[in-house]
Every structure is written in structure tokens, then in C-alpha cells.
Design a protein around this nucleic acid. Structure first.
Lengths: 159, 159
DNA sequence: CCTTGACCTTCCCATGATGGGAACCCTTAT
DNA sequence: ATAAGGGTTCCCATCATGGGAAGGTCAAGG
């Protein structure tokens, strides 16, 4: 079948199918004389696998591993399990970051009357001079962490 | 002060300061004869504002708006508030997506014995043929939604 | 005065997963 | 034969961020 149909039945866009081929996530599809890619059921199967894994938030690298484990009939299920578990950890981390942002923001929003008067605690907090503007209850050394997972994970330029 | 010190005291990397200038989030810094950018306290203040807003997950576009509101002494606080509220909504949406992924994954992990035997329900589910592989309790029309916020928000190529 | 090292400048490239679109080729039905 | 609707490759954009090269500047110490 052509790439369009493979896309329709697998739920992966044609653009993505070509991209997955390019990066080696799937093997190069055989070509017809016309140059068109030709897909079989097994390929669609694999694409569906990929799509479901993507829907679960796995990265392409992780999916590469999962596909390897999938095709290895003698793998230990513990490998798959630990891959899934570490992904859950990662998701839980992101969830916590988001929750921290939400609770901070909700507090700021609650403190803002939100009418047509110009004074606004939200902006005041963002503009505060102090190092710890979000006045948490002084209960210890925990920070909010570098929220939003920007890579450097740290403040400014530290080589 | 030089960009390095501005970076240190604001918590925004020098690279990002230059980038923010380039995209117009901050005005071009005055230059010394040497060509070095020169920052004053007010600039550092603004950079700190930006960093805090980024830490709260606001996009650069939203921060542009926030800075505009910040410098407008006659703005209505309701504007800031609604900006913050819609950002909270967005964060809540992401949080729900992540939660859906986590609960699905946790269920799969629970169903996987995770020893050295090769059979693995996690892979089996990812590879399942059915359209609804994650066998939810048949309680209605709700779907998990297009998790992971890939733009198309939909299945495959539908122009 | 000159060197050294720390700083600054600009410019280009990479990330991850995805879409948009142009220019061009293939197939099939009217 | 022509039009419509595929397909192909190639380039570009996203978003916020960092890496690194090539080269200019500055301050301290010999």
C-alpha cells in the first residue's frame, strides 16, 4: 500500500513516516518502479506500535529501545518494565513541576482583585527585588527546582 | 555593567540576554566604545522579571504582554489576571495529559510481572491490533485525547 | 611595554518532533 | 489528453536554549 493509506490506517502522518525512516526508527520501505514507498501489514503494525508509544509520551529514542525489545522474542519482560517505570518517573517529575507552577500562579491570581484598578500583586511579585519572591513558608531548603526543564538547569552562565 | 554581571545578578544566561534583545523582548542595550553591551539596574530588574515569568512557564509572547502591562501604570489588573488564568488553564491541560499517560503506564506496569520471562503485557498492548488498545472500562465516549500536544492534534494526514 | 587570561562580540549549528509548502513526477478516471 | 489526487525530495519554521569558533577588549602582573 502507498504511504497515504499506511498513514490512514496507522494514524501516523506521512510526513512522520518518512521522518521515522530517515532517522532509522523504521527500516527503509521498499520502492515500486515509480519510486513510491510500498508498505505491508507488518509495517502498519509497527507504525501503530510507534504511535501508541508516542501517545504515551515515549521519546523516539525510547521507542527505538521498545521496538528492539518487541522484536526480541527472548527478552526479559523486566527490561520493558524498567523502561516504562523510568518513563513514569520522568512524567511524574514534569507533573510536579507543572503543579508547582500552577499552585504559585493560583496564589498570585487569588491575591489579585482583578478589577479595573491598576495595582496588581501578580506583576508586583514578578518584579520583586528579593531572591525568593514567591515567599514560601520558610520551611526548609527545598527550591522549586529549575522548572520547565530548560537544559542548563541552572542560573545563568556557569561554565 | 557587562553582560556577564547582568547575567549573574539576574539569573538569565548571557546567551539568552542577547537572544531576548534580538527578538525584541528587551530593548537593545547601549554599547560602550568597545562594543560591549552596558546594563543598568533597571535592565537587571527587567531581566529578573523575565526569568521569574519563564520559571512560571509563561512563553516569550506572554512575557512580552506582561512586560507591556508592567510598564503601563494605568493598566487594569484584570488584564494581568486573565492572562495568568489562561496560562493556568494551559498548565492544567498539560497536567491532565501527563496524568492520563501516567495512569495508563502504571496500569501496564502493574500488569507486567517484570521477571526474566519474555512475555510482556506492556509490549502486547502497544502492539495490539484494536483501535482502542488500552481497554478502558467501556464507560462512554471519552477518548484520551491527543496527548502530548503534537500540533496536528489529530490522526495522520487530514488536510 | 607586552603577555596572559578572562571577558566580550558575531555567526553558525544543533536540539525534538512536527508541520508547511514548493517543484516536480506518477497513476487513474473521465 | 487532461485533470485530480496521489507520491517524491528538499528547504524552512517552530521554541527556547546551549555549544563552539574566530576574533576583539580589558585589566593585572612581569
Amino acid at each position: 500500500m502507498n504511504i497515504g493509506e499506511a498513514s490512514r490506517v496507522s494514524g501516523v502522518s506521512a510526513k512522520m513516516i518518512r521522518y521515522y525512516e530517515e532517522i532509522g526508527l523504521i527500516p527503509p520501505a521498499p520502492r515500486r518502479d515509480s519510486g513510491y514507498r510500498d508498505y505491508a501489514e507488518a509495517d502498519v503494525h509497527r507504525l501503530r506500535f510507534i504511535r501508541r508509544a508516542r501517545d504515551l509520551g515515549f521519546t523516539v529514542d525510547q521507542i527505538t529501545e521498545l521496538l528492539g525489545l518487541w522484536s526480541d522474542r527472548s527478552r526479559a519482560s523486566s527490561k520493558v518494565r524498567s523502561l516504562a517505570l523510568s518513563h513514569v518517573d520522568e512524567l511524574a517529575r514534569k507533573k510536579k513541576e507543572i503543579e508547582a507552577m500552577i499552585s504559585l500562579l493560583e496564589r498570585l491570581v487569588r491575591s489579585c482583585h482583578g478589577d479595573d484598578r491598576p495595582d496588581c500583586p501578580i506583576l508586583d511579585e514578578l518584579a520583586a527585588d528579593e531572591a525568593e519572591p514567591f515567599g514560601r513558608p520558610a520551611t526548609g531548603p527545598q527550591r522549586f527546582g529549575q522548572i520547565g526543564e530548560r537544559k542548563g538547569a541552572g542560573r545563568a552562565t556557569r561554565p
